[in-house]
Simulated scan of single mutants.
Amino acid sequence: FQKHEFFVDMTCEGCSNAVARVLNKLGGVEFEIDLPNKKVCIDSEHNVDTLLETLKKTGKTVTYIGPK
């Protein structure tokens, strides 16, 4: 599995819950959410495009930072 780091513009617990919800729906992912730094680190067999699309379903601004 490859670890990827994303910037997600999360401001509150509700935002991080939304991120967790879409990632859990996708399945096959392990992730850590760093709310203060607005980062999500995802360990997954999915490619970056799939992960980006999934994170964007939250309606937040999402940027791919790079492999971890």
Results as ranks from 00 to 15, higher is better:
Glu53Ser: 14
Gln2Cys: 10
Pro36Asp: 03
Asn47Ser: 06
Val22Lys: 04
Pro67Gly: 12
Leu23His: 01
Val40Glu: 00
Leu26Lys: 08
Tyr64Leu: 13
Thr61Tyr: 08
Gly59Trp: 03
Leu35Asp: 03
Asn17Met: 05
Phe7Pro: 04
Phe31Trp: 01
Leu23Ala: 03
Asn37Glu: 13
Lys56Thr: 09
Val29His: 02
Ile33Thr: 01
Lys25Ile: 10
Gly59Val: 09
Lys56Pro: 12
Phe6Gln: 09
Val8Glu: 01
Glu45Gly: 10
Lys38Val: 05
Thr50Glu: 15
Glu53Ala: 15
Val62Trp: 00
Glu32Phe: 01
Phe31Pro: 02
Ser44Cys: 08
Asn37Lys: 11
Val19Ile: 04
Cys15Ser: 05
Glu32Met: 04
Glu5Cys: 12
Gly28Gln: 10
Glu13Ser: 06
Met10Val: 05
Gly59Asn: 11
Arg21Tyr: 07
Leu52Val: 12
His46Cys: 11
Met10Cys: 04
Thr63Gly: 14
Ser16Glu: 04
Thr50His: 11
Gly66Lys: 08
Lys25Arg: 13
Ala20Lys: 13
Pro67Phe: 15
Tyr64Pro: 13
Leu55Ser: 13
Lys57Phe: 10
Cys12Leu: 08
Thr63Glu: 14
Val48Cys: 13
Asp34Gln: 05
Glu13Asn: 07
Ile33Asn: 00
Glu45Ser: 13
Cys12Ser: 08
Gly66His: 08
Cys15Ala: 05
His46Ser: 15
Ile65Arg: 08
Arg21Glu: 02
Thr50Tyr: 02
Asn24Phe: 00
Asn37His: 12
Ile65Tyr: 04
Thr58Tyr: 05
Lys56Glu: 14
Gly28Ile: 06
Val62Gly: 13
Glu45Ala: 09
Asp34Phe: 00
Thr63Ile: 14
Leu51Phe: 05
Val8Cys: 01
Asp34Val: 02
